[in-house]
Design a protein around this nucleic acid. Sequence first.
DNA 1: CGTCGAATTGATGTCATTCAACTACAGTGG
DNA 2: CCACTGTAGTTGAATGACATCAATTCGACG
Lengths: 205, 205
Amino acid sequence: MDDFVEKFECYNPKTLLFSDMMCEVLGKPVEELKEFLDMITWRNVSKNDFVIRPGDMVKHTYYVEKGVLRMYVIDKVGKEHVVQFAPEGWFVTDRQCTYLNEPSEYFIQAIEDTQMALVPKDFLRRIMAVYPKIIEKNTFFLNRYIMLYQRRITLLLSATAEERYLAFMQTHPNFINRVPLYMLASYLGITPESLSRVRNELAKK
Amino acid sequence: MDDFVEKFECYNPKTLLFSDMMCEVLGKPVEELKEFLDMITWRNVSKNDFVIRPGDMVKHTYYVEKGVLRMYVIDKVGKEHVVQFAPEGWFVTDRQCTYLNEPSEYFIQAIEDTQMALVPKDFLRRIMAVYPKIIEKNTFFLNRYIMLYQRRITLLLSATAEERYLAFMQTHPNFINRVPLYMLASYLGITPESLSRVRNELAKK
DNA sequence: CGTCGAATTGATGTCATTCAACTACAGTGG
DNA sequence: CCACTGTAGTTGAATGACATCAATTCGACG
């Protein structure tokens, strides 16, 4: 399980810039990839700004180079539910929107001032024609996502509020102090009050 | 949301045989794909048989041609938690095991007599060298997985037992009478007793 | 220093679990 | 063919975990 943490949650590539990552993955200098990197644009958003809102059509995958994003929904009784946090080195997008051409149901919002690379939908298809090696990396990223979600589902099915909090602390130690507790509570599927009590109990020990 | 159901949960390809699906995806006759299809083996398991158990090393992705598999874990207090059901046309594997070379923590068991295709780990890598089109299909399958899991997480975070049951009934109408209720309860994250009461309440209406 | 959102704390309520008893039914062996 | 057995499913009563609501404190920021 510790391995899992290291390999997946606290994934910490040598560099967090999208261009550098591409160069490293493909083992090519940046000049050689210019044709493809020219497809990428960059965007900075301030804390609390929205990257997407419900109703938007999402055309990019967002790669976070600096900062943290959170993706969340608001349910029919007005409550927020955090689907994922995306810190440096992570991708986030609304796949339902991108793949099904349906307007998004989600919010993506910056928790800190954030710098991100906007990867257009056909970037992968075009670069893979020249550099098929990229596929392995992409498949790895997708599989990593699936594994993380599966782990989270297992926790939601089987663990108490306290256990889920402890699991989060183990797998995302660098997140504490970056995300407010009420968002963390939402991610864990409990109320801020409950999280407060859980932390209080743990502190006593 | 209805579209979602149709496009994802009740995905019903024209044919459920792995070879036929490959031919259809690539638009090639079966003879032409022989080199790759020879990598596939088939296996039949009887109801209640195990495909994998904790401690096994998983070398294949299983594609269900007929029957249903369920993947589940047993937690530290001995309770089962169903991670996914895999009916005809679905893939299932333990990615953690396959990707991280760690022994599996999961059970995969046949709920009905089941016929499946065993796809070895390097099948994709080898076939994509000749038929890059396969990548799109694979990426689609992986993204579909992510979307489904994301949806399930959202439900676990926000919905009551009754709402989760109703959502399941909507998205998997063909599953009722194929999976026993105690497994469905486990999938929904509730006890069999609670599910029984939920169904009882709904029947009254 | 004042303000507003975040976090904590207490009192109370509710949904789902737990434990136990019971029913329904399929499979097995005499 | 029927009694026996075990598993799935149901039902009831008591318990518990977390939610809700309301009041208060904390803390960042203008």
